[in-house]
Design a protein around this nucleic acid. Structure first.
Lengths: 139, 139
DNA sequence: GATAATCATCACATTGTTATGATAATTTAA
DNA sequence: TTAAATTATCATAACAATGTGATGATTATC
């Protein structure tokens, strides 16, 4: 459903959300903890920073943190830069023009499902996916 | 949402469903009508035939037709050979083990949405997407 | 049979995504 | 002001998806 890259982004954001507030986190430590190739994650997080989801600082003692509180970041904002299924609904049959007024045969049925996916990403906040401390310890 | 290949498959199946009964259809004519590269479509339809969705005949006057009535073919069966989002629900965070009893933080919310997508593909029949003759003429 | 039509398959080119490593730019701190 | 740490960026490799061209296999018809 999500591309590999979008999944990395989401996992990193959740990782940072769970530890928010105290300090900046280096790419090297995030990458090691989450099992993601470091240089690839570096590029991915850079994109997230440009998108305004993360804040980055270069140089010694630099690193990444969330740019805003976790309850002000939607999943859509996290995966959008990696062309997740978050954006506008796309015609199932690939028609360039497919709308309520000029629908493809799948339009009505697909729209309902597609809207559910869109609103999941658009309305779910990062904070909605934070595990409680207890649950996190349990794992 | 669907890969290009899966979209080709679905469009071809709908094309055949709209003309079902009379005869076999050559790859060349389907490809031209739908604007799909012919050799690529040939490969794709061969896969659909092996999957039991289409029937193919070789040789002169050969071609493709639906293997079963359009109301007995689900969208899932059409896109499954091309790894559409039809199969089992996949963990949004990429965990190999993610279940009701061992859920990732996104599990509960994502499951509900994901089930909707699965059941759309699993329960919608090809016949459900056939345009009425009137609508088809209108286009 | 011979021929033409047609699907099946092989080989390869092109493109996009994912991944890796190397280097540049920036910042802190000694 | 220099050195070390760290993100930013570049180059490129590996792989999968997509597309193209050529050839093989099968069938209907003459």
């Amino acid at each position: 459903m999500l591309s590999q890259t979008a999944e990395y982004a989401l996992r990193t954001v959740l990782y940072l959300a769970a530890r928010q507030g105290d300090r900046l986190f280096r790419v090297s430590e995030i990458a090691e903890e989450l099992g993601i190739p470091q240089n690839y994650l570096s590029k991915t997080l850079h994109i997230l920073a440009r998108a305004g989801v993360l804040h980055s600082s270069r140089g010694k003692n630099g690193g990444f943190r969330l740019a805003r509180p976790a309850n002000e970041i939607t999943l859509a904002q996290v995966v959008a830069p990696f062309s997740g299924p978050t954006g506008e609904r796309i015609c199932l049959l690939g028609r360039v023009a497919c709308s309520d007024s000029d629908p493809c045969p799948a339009h009505a049925k697909w729209k309902a499902v597609s809207n559910q996916v869109s609103s999941f990403f658009g309305e779910t906040k990062v904070s909605d996916l934070q595990e409680s401390p207890v649950a996190r310890v349990k794992r």
